[in-house]
Computed example of a mutant assay.
Amino acid sequence: MTKQLTIAQVSEMISDSKLSADELLQLKQDKRIGVKKLVEKYERQQELEKLEKEKFVEMMTFEQARYLMGDNYIAGIDEAGRGPLAGPVVAAAVILTEDFYLAGLNDSKQLNKRKRDYFFDYIKTNAFSYGIGIIHNNEIDSINILQATKKAMKSAIQQLDPIPDHILVDAVKLDELPCTSESIIKGDQKSVSIAAASILAKVTRDRLMEELDKEYPMYQFASNMGYGTKDHLLAIEKYGITPYHRRTFAPVSNYSNL
């Protein structure tokens, strides 16, 4: 049957559905080079999907432990922007449903921009609840970056509905929360909830920095996101600092505004 199909038809057949064992066996018996290449591509894709699913299941370990304890609403918390010289620190809190699945979900820093943007929209649409907290540079200078990060995280948590039963936080330890919590080192690589939060936080912050870039293009905020790259430091030396720079951060603190 498969030998009667054109290569274009085989390609459509493979792309439209998951092949049965019999269908795959028949295609493997086809001697045409084009079909062999399509089968190899299909098998590579199936292996990738298998690995992504295994990784996702592994990253559900912390959530599953809480589900087994009777918790229904588990929030993941992460931030973006603790280290830059300019711009806000942004935190996100996300509650996912127990059956949530997003192949390839990982720490936002491990994903390219196209995938982050897609995941950002998918998570916002399919999350049970989410919140985003933003603390701007002036307040960061006033209360320090650690306290600003915690304040952004708590702001994100306060936006959640319902109140979570348990909170998973990436690295930071939070107190005075409405429920139990645990801090997980490299949590954005170990928990799907934290990974989802990392994507919401990073994409939100990146888009804010892209807007600042339109106002101050000489600092290249759209590409460096406020981090102290060589070009960014040279721009500070040449033009001084903007209203969005963190004045308490070295080497920003060494310059006065022009």
Results as ranks from 00 to 15, higher is better:
3 K>F: 13
5 L>I: 10
16 D>N: 15
17 S>F: 11
22 D>P: 02
24 L>V: 07
29 Q>I: 01
33 I>C: 04
36 K>M: 09
42 Y>D: 05
46 Q>Y: 02
46 Q>S: 04
49 E>V: 00
50 K>W: 02
52 E>L: 13
54 E>Y: 03
54 E>R: 05
55 K>E: 13
58 E>G: 01
58 E>H: 10
64 Q>L: 11
64 Q>H: 11
65 A>E: 15
66 R>N: 07
68 L>E: 14
73 Y>C: 03
75 A>Y: 06
80 A>C: 12
84 P>D: 05
85 L>Y: 03
85 L>I: 00
86 A>F: 00
92 A>M: 12
93 A>W: 08
94 V>D: 12
94 V>M: 12
97 T>G: 15
99 D>F: 08
108 S>A: 14
126 N>E: 14
129 S>Y: 12
134 I>T: 14
136 H>C: 09
138 N>H: 15
141 D>C: 04
141 D>R: 08
142 S>G: 04
143 I>D: 11
143 I>S: 12
145 I>C: 04
147 Q>D: 14
160 L>A: 11
166 H>F: 15
170 D>E: 07
173 K>Q: 13
174 L>N: 03
174 L>T: 02
177 L>V: 10
180 T>A: 09
182 E>T: 07
183 S>K: 01
185 I>D: 07
191 S>Y: 05
211 E>S: 09
213 D>F: 07
218 M>S: 08
222 A>W: 03
223 S>Y: 11
225 M>D: 05
226 G>K: 02
227 Y>K: 03
229 T>H: 03
231 D>R: 09
232 H>I: 06
235 A>D: 06
238 K>D: 08
239 Y>S: 04
240 G>V: 05
243 P>I: 06
245 H>N: 01
249 F>V: 01
250 A>T: 02
251 P>I: 01
256 S>C: 01
256 S>P: 00
257 N>W: 03
258 L>K: 08
